[in-house]
């Protein structure tokens, strides 16, 4: 099934997180520097496990690799405006979750071209935005929200402290109240016993 020969006809089996396997051409797979470093020279017996990524993601990544097999060697980032119609469709049809999964997989597989296009696309989304707008995009709380959150947390902490102090005070009082009868009881018992002993000894 798999062999170290570098012919483009050679197919490799890829295993996804679901345990499913599918074919990828050697030429497409060689765009992954991770694959090149791990398997190209030694070959792989059986499916190559990329089990951190699901089948849909891996198929999407290798769909890109298969498509760009005949493109010239990657020579640095390309501007989004220079992307082909196919490339644009490829990126546009992904939802956000898939897009993030593809970046992660592409980063792990070290497919420079795909990683770089994805990153350029994200950079484009943020370029020209001010800090507040960026915070909204990357879903971070704003400074005001953080401040408000901190205030709420401080209030909560203060309230919790008060409750704890009250509880401690109450516990102390309860302890004294509860202890007193016991001590008294012990003392009383001791007194009774002493008296009894004395009465016995008198007898």
């Amino acid at each position: 099934m798999t062999s170290p020969a570098s012919s483009s006809e050679v197919k490799y089996l890829i295993e996804s997180s679901e345990g499913n396997t599918f074919d990828v051409s050697g030429a497409a797979l060689r765009q992954s520097n991770t694959f090149n470093a791990m398997f190209l020279n030694i070959g792989a017996d059986g499916p190559i496990p990329f089990t951190d990524y699901n089948e849909a993601t891996l198929k999407k990544v290798f769909e890109y690799c298969e498509h760009s097999v005949n493109e010239e060697n990657y020579s640095g980032p390309k501007h989004q405006d220079d992307l082909s119609k196919w490339d644009l469709n490829f990126f546009n049809e992904m939802d956000q979750k898939m897009f993030i999964d593809v970046i992660n997989a592409s980063n792990f597989l070290d497919i420079e071209r795909l990683t770089s296009y994805c990153c350029e696309r994200i950079a484009r989304m943020l370029r020209g935005k001010n800090t507040q707008e960026m915070i909204k995009v990357i879903t971070l709380p704003t400074a005001e929200e953080l401040e408000a959150k901190q205030k709420v947390e401080e209030k909560k902490a203060a309230a919790a402290k008060k409750v704890a102090e009250k509880a401690a005070e109450t516990a102390e009082k309860t302890e004294t109240l509860e202890e007193l009868p016991v001590q008294q009881l012990v003392q009383t018992t001791r007194n009774k016993l002493t008296r009894k002993y004395l009465s016995f000894s008198n007898e």
Partner: peptide, 23 residues
């Protein structure tokens, strides 16, 4: 443009660096 919001800080380090290089 991609659909905002986009949690880019959850991305691995290398893509994050790559994004900044494009700013």
């Amino acid at each position: 443009p991609g659909p905002p919001p986009f949690p880019i800080l959850k991305l691995p380090y290398i893509p994050l660096n790559n994004i900044i290089l494009n700013f």
